[in-house]
Every structure is written in structure tokens, then in C-alpha cells.
Design a protein around this nucleic acid. Structure first.
Lengths: 329, 329
DNA sequence: ACAAATCTCGTAACCGATTACAAAAGCGGG
DNA sequence: CCCGCTTTTGTAATCGGTTACGAGATTTGT
């Protein structure tokens, strides 16, 4: 056998001394195969390291290729989305589907239609959304979009948990670096922040909320400026890890120690941050798996609905108990 | 005909009243088809908006699926690479190949082998590189790697062009924000900067070269600090657009006008920067097309070689003629 | 122990393309 | 008008899977 060629179902059948039909039945978990035979086939599959060729499955209608469409705006928050890509590819792969990178036209619509799509960063009345719906192409969205299959992290709970964490540490002057106002997730994190303050009976101070755009640099500049203008606070909740990185840098540059003087909490738990940042972890793998599940339901013509994925506070070294400030320099 | 089902080659053949073989010959540009027949087939293809199903082509060995492997480090420079993704998918598509998003193991190797791979951000003695070579899987690299098929922009020329542009405008005190030292492209851009200075008979001043890491924030902090320490210059050449954005912000925050007081030149010509930044454009589409061409040669077992893609200076509003500084405040 | 019901498994058609091969059609020369 | 050569076209096998169908083997009931 040509060792360069990867084994086919025929190779498996021949070695296991059964027919290709039986191998296929075993692999697809169909009933009506003798346990002993099943074991023998699986053993050969393992030994030959056989994996079905996706193209052939697709031909018989058993592999769906799924495309992914990114809104132009999301290019700014790419580290997060790239992570998602990989999880999505993995989740699809497990289901016998494949993620296909399709070239898009200027409007952002694919030139060659896949069986279904995952959309990220779509906005209300997105032309791509309407076009897909008009063509009857199933799709699932990452985010919150009433009337469509969609999955999103529970950002309200995340914002609440991050803020409550700081409140429980004794902090009362908590700054919030927001995402862009048109970004749903950012708005929800802000709402969680407000809700936590309210739960602790604290007033909502507008000067403690700094508009950001999820970028590290903007977070740095806004925070540093506000500090140099004399505003004081003991904690910062940033709506993304990248903004938290900006905040950390700004605090460092104005000579404030973290976490001794100011605590910082981020959001996303990006692995490349790598630091000791207290943050809110999104279960991206779970979001991806859910997206795939929704996609399958969309393909089977079910009624659209939305899913929320819980988030989790991860406490690391950037947050600590509130320390009253020394008076004066 | 079920209108939901996309047309197959059989539909085309039936409508055009020829055999599937003839349709296939027409579509693949094979000779031996009567011009009249060819016209008739093409007409039907257009009318039915027929596109061949990739899975079926793949089955007959005519579509190669190509994977892409990203080094963990490149996640930091994602905007650029995402652009590349799309161009690569497009270039492959035109050649009847497809870019497949494959899940990778912890080492970064694909769990399911594609026919060939494009690697980005590989370093010398990259285990993935050696693993692919050992398995005889064809691959092409983006960057410079002697002994492999590789394609890279001509960064030396780019660094030279950017610096010469500033020199021609009369600038003599030109700061350079470098990329990371371990990044080949950054080193070349620096070399181009040095070469241009030498060509104009200027000494190389180490204090004018600021180590960066391609990140916006680092560029901002380094530039602002150096300015506040009293170093003066009339121009900045940043080794990436993102660093240029950081430079622009820093200059703004220290109250320096661009381009009147200081000129800024970036590198990459990222579309989302969108501003009036003078920069060096990399022809990413051409790099992607070349990668595909190299991939095909790699698959046919040719001898490895490297290709350089020319870059182009794009003059916009962030650079202008040198203006002598007013003395004192 | 024998017929019927049930399990297990092999055979072959099929998915949508490509292409080797053969058949048919067109052509010119004698 | 026929022969032989070239051009054009159709036919059928093939790629690697899935699955309907039916055959053979095994179990069950009486």
C-alpha cells in the first residue's frame, strides 16, 4: 500500500475482513452490527489511523460546509475572534462538518454559498443577514439578535460579577472602561456594572465611566488623562482584557501600584495576555459548540431562539483588598 | 427541478443538450470542443449560475484543500494576517483549491492533514516545519526561510523607501520605531532605514531607534517618554501602521502637530487605519497569489526557492516638508 | 426439530465531478 | 463516392464514502 496515501474505508474493510457497508455503519454508530464485529472494525480504524475523507461524505450529503462571515468592524477585536475561529472549527469537525474560508464580495457576502453560516459582529438590519434569510440559508449569530438563532455570553452577569468582586474587596470608587456604545456586549457589561453598584446601594457616577473602544491605546489615554486631572479611584473594571492592559500600563506610567493602590479587572481571559490579570472568562469553546448546535437546528428548520452562555470570574493577582490611600504626598 | 438544490453538471448537460463530459471539458478549458458547442455550454452555465461542487472535484483529485498554520506569536499582529487570510482564500479559490480551517493540536500541528499548508510566523527550527517536511507534506512559508518555498515582501526596500521619502522632504532627525528583534520583517525594515541614512551620508544614531513590538501601546509609550525626556526629531518612521497610530497619538498628547511639526510614516497600509497616513503598502493579494503558486510547485516536487514581492510607498497627509523648529517656547 | 422472526452483513446504486476510451461526425484527397 | 485521418462527442469507470435492499445466519417459539 502506498504509505503516502491515507487509508480509505476500503482499506479498513479489507483489513478487518468485513464490507465497507459494515465499516460505515460502525463509524456512524448505526445499530445492527455485532458487538464483536464492531470492536474488530474499531481496532483496525485505530491501527490504521483512519479518518473519513470529508469530501466524500459531503458528496453523499453527510458533511455540511459552514462558512463564517465577519463584519468589517470586528477586525478591531480580532484576538478574541481568532480564538473563536479555532473553537468553532473544532466543534464543527467533531460533528463531521467543516469550516470553509470563502471569499466574499465587497458587501461581505460569500461568492460561493456554503450550506450554512456563522455570523459575527452583525448589526440590526445587516444586509447580509437579510440576504441569507431571503435565500433560505440557515445561519447562527454570535451576539443577541431577536428572531434569529443566536448565542452570546451572559455579559450582564459578567459585568455584575466583576464589579461585585471589587465591591466585596471593599472598593467603592470603581472606574469602568466601556466598549463602544454600539457594541451590544459592551452595553451589557456596563449594565452589569450599574446593577452591582445599585445592589450595594452606591450611586452611579457618570465621571467614573469612561467611553472606550475596546482598544488598548484608548484605554491607556483615557485613564491616564483622567488620573492626571485629579480623579481618584481604587479600582478599574475594563470591559475587555485589552483595555485592562491599557489601564495597567497607564497606572504604571503615573506611578500607581497594582493591585496595592488600584485593583484592575479585565474581561475575556485572552490567553495571550498571560499576565496575572483578574478577569471574566468567556467559555469560547462552549459558545462555539452551541453555535454548531444552533446551526444544526437552523438547518432542520426549527424555530429560532437565543442561548446565553454563563461566564466565570477568574481571580488572579491584579485585584486585592481595598487599602485606604495615604493622605497627601 | 428543486429550486433549493443548486444545479449540477448534469443539469447543465441536459439543458445544453450535450454530455457531462463535454461540459467538464468546457469548464476546464480543455481543447477538442467545437467553439459553437463551447458557447452554448457557457451560455447555459451562466444562465443556471452553475458552479462546480468542490467536494466532487476534490474526490476526483482536482481540488486540493490547503490548511493554514499560524504561529502563536502572530496572534499579536492579527489585522495584517486576517487580511492575508482573505486574499489567500480568494487566490486558492481561483485555482480550484480551498482553504480549510483545521483544528490543531497543542503543538500547532493539524489533527487532520490537508493536502498542503501555508505557514505564517514560523521561526528557524520550527517543529511544525520539520514535521511537515518529514511527512513529505508540501508547504509554503510567508517570510524568509532558506531552503523552503517562501514568499515575503521586500521589506528592505520598503524601509529604504520610507526613510528616503522623509530624507527627500528635508528631514534629518528621523526616529525609527522597530518591530520585535526576532521578527525578520522588522529587522529588514530597520536595515532599509539604516541603508537610506547611509546613502544620504547621515550617521546612524542609536538613540533614534526605539525598540517596539508592533503594538500600538508600546509605540505610544516609548515615543511619548522619549519626547518628554527632551529628545527632538522631525520625523518618525514606524515599522507598522499600528505603531504609527501609537506615534500619532503620542505626538498629539504632547502637543506636537502632524505633519507640520513632525512627519510620520507607517508600514503595511492597513485599510482599517483609514486615516491620512503616509505608509508603505504591501501587495497582500500578490503575496497570497504567489503563495498559491509556490504551493503548486511544492506539490509538484520542484526545488524550493524564495520570492520577494515589491512594496510601494503611498504618500498621504502625515508627512510633509521639513520645517525648522521655532526656537524656544 | 422446524418454521418464523430477528440479527447481521454483503452487494450495489448513488452523490457530482473528471477523464480514458471509443464511437461518431466532419473533412479532404483520389 | 469511398477511405482514412482528425475533430468532436458520448459512455462508463472512478474517486470515497452512505444506505436501501436482500441474503444468509442466528435465535426464538412451539
Amino acid at each position: 500500500m502506498d504509505s503516502r496515501r491515507s487509508p480509505t474505508i476500503n482499506d479498513v474493510a479489507r483489513v478487518a475482513q468485513v464490507s465497507t457497508g459494515t465499516v460505515s455503519r460502525v463509524l456512524n454508530g448505526r445499530s445492527g452490527v455485532h458487538p464483536q464485529t464492531r470492536e474488530r472494525v474499531l481496532e483496525v480504524v485505530r491501527r490504521l489511523a483512519y479518518t473519513p475523507m470529508q469530501a466524500a461524505r459531503e458528496l453523499t450529503g453527510h458533511t455540511e460546509t459552514v462558512g463564517i462571515l465577519l463584519a468589517p468592524e470586528v477586525r478591531r477585536y480580532i484576538p478574541y475572534y481568532l480564538l473563536f475561529f479555532e473553537r468553532l472549527a473544532e466543534a464543527l469537525w467533531r460533528e463531521g462538518m467543516r469550516l470553509e474560508e470563502t471569499p466574499t464580495d465587497p458587501v461581505g457576502l460569500p461568492l460561493k454559498a456554503a450550506r450554512a453560516y456563522v455570523l459575527m459582529g452583525a448589526h440590526d438590519h445587516d444586509p447580509r443577514l437579510e440576504s441569507l434569510a431571503a435565500q433560505g440559508i440557515p445561519f447562527a449569530l454570535i451576539g443577541v439578535y431577536p428572531g434569529s438563532f443566536c448565542v452570546a455570553p451572559d455579559d450582564l452577569a459578567g459585568g455584575y460579577a466583576a464589579t461585585r468582586h471589587l465591591l466585596e474587596l471593599g472598593h467603592r470608587e470603581i472606574l469602568h472602561l466601556t466598549g463602544q456604545p454600539q457594541h451590544q456586549a459592551g452595553r451589557e457589561r456596563l449594565a452589569g456594572y450599574q446593577k452591582a453598584l445599585a445592589a450595594y446601594g452606591l450611586p452611579y457616577r457618570e465621571d467614573f465611566v469612561l467611553d472606550g473602544d475596546f482598544s488598548t491605546l484608548t484605554a491607556y489615554r483615557r485613564l491616564r488623562r483622567i488620573w492626571e486631572q485629579g480623579l481618584r479611584f481604587s479600582a478599574v473594571f475594563a470591559a475587555s482584557d485589552e483595555m485592562a492592559v491599557g489601564a495597567l500600563a497607564a497606572l504604571e506610567d503615573v506611578g500607581v501600584g497594582v493591585p496595592l493602590e488600584v485593583s484592575v479587572v479585565g474581561y475575556d481571559d485572552l490567553p495571550e495576555i498571560g499576565s496575572a490579570l483578574t478577569t471574566v472568562r468567556q467559555d469560547i469553546a462552549e459558545i462555539a459548540r452551541t453555535a454548531v448546535r444552533l446551526l444544526k437546528e437552523a438547518m432542520s428548520g426549527a424555530q429560532p431562539y437565543g442561548v446565553r452562555i454563563p461566564v466565570q470570574l477568574v481571580v488572579r493577582g491584579s485585584s486585592s483588598l481595598y487599602q485606604p490611600r495615604a493622605l497627601g504626598p
